[in-house]
């Protein structure tokens, strides 16, 4: 029974990370790509690590997995936030702003 639940978790986690990977190619501008990458990162980490925890018999390995989960939940959103802020600080424009400039340019 637990086996099936963990398999479901794993599959769904893998699916989300695949969508994230496709997202960083398909999305129009940088900020949506960062959004796609970091959101799917977090969700797939949670799902896969829970899937793995179910497979262990809840000993030291499970604690290590939880430690990884906490660590990654703390660091990867922060890293993506810092990246986006630095990109913004570095003068990167969002899609809306580039379109509005073009419109202003056209009129």
């Amino acid at each position: 029974m637990i086996e099936i639940i963990s398999s479901v978790f794993l599959i769904v986690g893998a699916f989300f990370s695949l969508t994230g990977a496709v997202g960083i190619f398909k999305f129009p501008d940088f900020f949506t790509r960062v959004h796609a990458a970091s959101v799917t990162d977090s969700i797939s980490t949670i799902l896969i690590i829970f899937g793995l925890i179910l497979r262990t018999d809840f000993d030291l390995v499970a604690v290590k997995l939880l430690f990884i989960l906490i660590f990654m939940l703390l660091t990867s959103p922060t890293a993506s936030h810092a990246l986006a802020k630095s990109a913004r600080h570095g003068g990167l424009l969002t899609l809306a702003e580039t379109r509005s400039d073009k419109k202003v340019g056209d009129d």
Partner: peptide, 8 residues
């Protein structure tokens, strides 16, 4: 400027 970073 990265307040979030300093807290984390």
């Amino acid at each position: 400027s990265h307040l979030v970073l300093r807290v984390v």
